[in-house]
Design a protein around this nucleic acid. Structure first.
Length: 446
RNA sequence: GACCCGGUAGCUCAGUUGGCAGAGCACCUGACUUUUAAUCAGGGUGUCCUGGGUUCGAGUCCCAGCCGGGUCACCA
């Protein structure tokens, strides 16, 4: 112990406190760790020692100065010469041995969860390093980090119901963005060739273990690239992050060990469905015929039956849960992908993939549709879906179509769920474990 | 939205067949100069989630509601 005898100053929150007649021990903790303090009457003097005995409680934050020594059990301890109360706790901290377990209190007073449960704090430390590595990854590859509007006059870029708000000065409603896609594409049209944005997006939908109404998504776009470039990108990104935050390409998740080493398994969507269910979705091009096949599988039909929703139902029910090891599902039906470019060899399909890891959808990418005429048709198809009752169909965006008419280079684009990535790298079962302050319902009394 | 589970002291929890509201930690009083989940002696601090109902009597049984969790639905 090289610092023995030297004067040391440290501060922290009191976690344990053992007061005796003329001495007291405490453990204090700050972000760097915990250490024991030793207060002695004959070192501190009557007044200062009396203050410790009468005033100090668990949870208080104190500043101290003293010298280090080892107790007879060998623990490094600060013998305190001077001490000052930095913040007095008026509320009792959670119980020191059992910690804070009650899920409702943990959510409503999240600061107590952080204070009482170091492993909860640890997850956010991992998340922070992970995001840093993600930024470095894109920065090093020449992508420009940009920030596009959160408040948008029209929403788009994903299938979701938006949150709506109102701008008083303009007396105009705005939507909180459900995706950054259409603005990032405007950047491409304007000549930026590689852009990315890590941003909060908002979708007015239910919450569960892998959905939160506000979440962080990374979208990246690269001119003169296509979805195969995005396949390599997602594989390399996950590998880089794994090595940076975990030190290995293999990570534990739940009961599984996931190997992120590229290349990931690639399966064509309709083949994955056929392998799991025996149904060749392209052999049943009409919704009614496909519905009969889906029902024969014992799968409940979605509320709104279209060919596309049935395909998605098959995917969600029978394919996605099995995708524990990293898998790229490729070549989606055009009806599910109104912003993606059609395959040249099969106009029913688009150049798109979704990446799955640990059963979670972690990325969605495509060769971006840059034909303004086809894009208009796709929007018009969405408008028909909308008129038929699909609240999540995408609205026709004339302003975006106008931009496309000036010419967007062929582009590969990808959306990556940052929260789900954090779930994987922190081995968290719930997205709320990697969101600092998840929303909770107001209590009537509050 | 449906179903299941839960809500008792600041925290973690117990509470029997319906019969005075409990324990540990925390807290308060006293003792204690190397303790470390300190120890020893004493002290219970409560809207039993809320509102009704049944009953001589409800934390416990019934109904409605609130809040949380889980599963499902939704999230193409």
């Amino acid at each position: 112990m090289s610092a023995a005898g030297e004067t040391v100053r440290l501060a922290g929150r009191i976690l344990t406190l053992r007061k005796m007649g003329k001495a007291a021990f405490a453990h204090v903790e700050d972000a760097s760790g915990r250490i024991q303090l030793y207060f002695r009457l004959n070192v501190l003097g009557d007044d200062a020692f009396a203050t410790v005995k009468e005033l100090y409680d668990l949870g208080d934050i104190v500043g101290t100065e003293g010298t280090l020594f080892r107790t007879r059990t060998g623990e490094i301890t600060l013998e305190v010469r001077r001490a000052v109360m930095l913040a007095k706790a008026l509320q009792n901290p959670p119980e020191k041995f059992h910690g804070l377990r009650d899920t409702e209190t943990r959510l409503r007073r999240r600061y107590l969860d952080f204070a009482a449960n170091p492993d909860v704090r640890q997850a956010f430390s991992v998340r922070s390093r992970m995001v840093s590595e993600v930024r470095s990854f894109f920065d090093e590859r020449g992508y420009l980090e940009v920030e596009t509007p959160v408040l948008q006059p029209l929403y788009g870029g994903a299938f979701a119901r938006p949150f709506v708000t109102h701008h008083n000065a303009l007396d105009q409603d705005f939507y909180l963005r459900i995706a950054t896609e259409l603005y990032l594409k405007r950047c491409l049209i304007g000549g930026f060739e590689r852009v990315y944005e890590i941003g909060r997006t908002f979708r007015n939908e239910g919450m569960d273990r892998d959905h939160n109404p506000e979440f962080t998504m990374l979208e990246a776009y690269q001119a003169y690239a296509d979805y195969t470039d995005m396949m390599a990108l997602i594989e390399e990104l996950y590998l880089s992050v794994a090595l940076a935050v975990h030190g290995a390409a293999q990570i534990p998740y739940g009961d599984d060990e996931i190997d992120l080493t590229p290349p990931w398994r690639r399966v064509r969507l309709h083949e994955a469905i056929e392998a799991a269910t025996g149904i060749d979705i392209y052999a049943f091009p009409e919704a009614d015929a496909l519905l009969a096949e889906v029902r024969a599988q014992g799968i409940a039909a979605p509320e709104r039956v279209t060919w596309a929703t049935l395909v998605d139902e098959l995917l969600a029910e029978r394919v996605e849960p099995t995708l524990i090891q990293p898998t790229l599902l490729v070549d989606y039906p055009v009806a599910l992908s109104p912003l993606a470019k059609r395959r040249e060899d099969d106009a029913r399909m688009v150049e798109r993939f979704e990446a799955f890891v640990g059963g979670l959808e972690v990325a969605n990418a495509f060769s971006e549709l840059n034909d303004p005429l086809d894009q208009r048709q796709r929007f018009e198809e969405q408008a028909r879906e909308r008129a038929a009752g699909d609240e999540e169909a995408q609205p026709l965006d004339e302003d975006f179509l106008l931009a496309l008419e000036y010419g967007m280079p062929p582009t590969g684009g990808i959306g990556i769920g940052i929260d789900r990535m954090a779930m994987l790298f922190t081995n968290s079962a719930s997205i709320r474990d990697v969101i600092l302050f998840p929303p909770v319902r107001n209590r009537e009394s509050e």
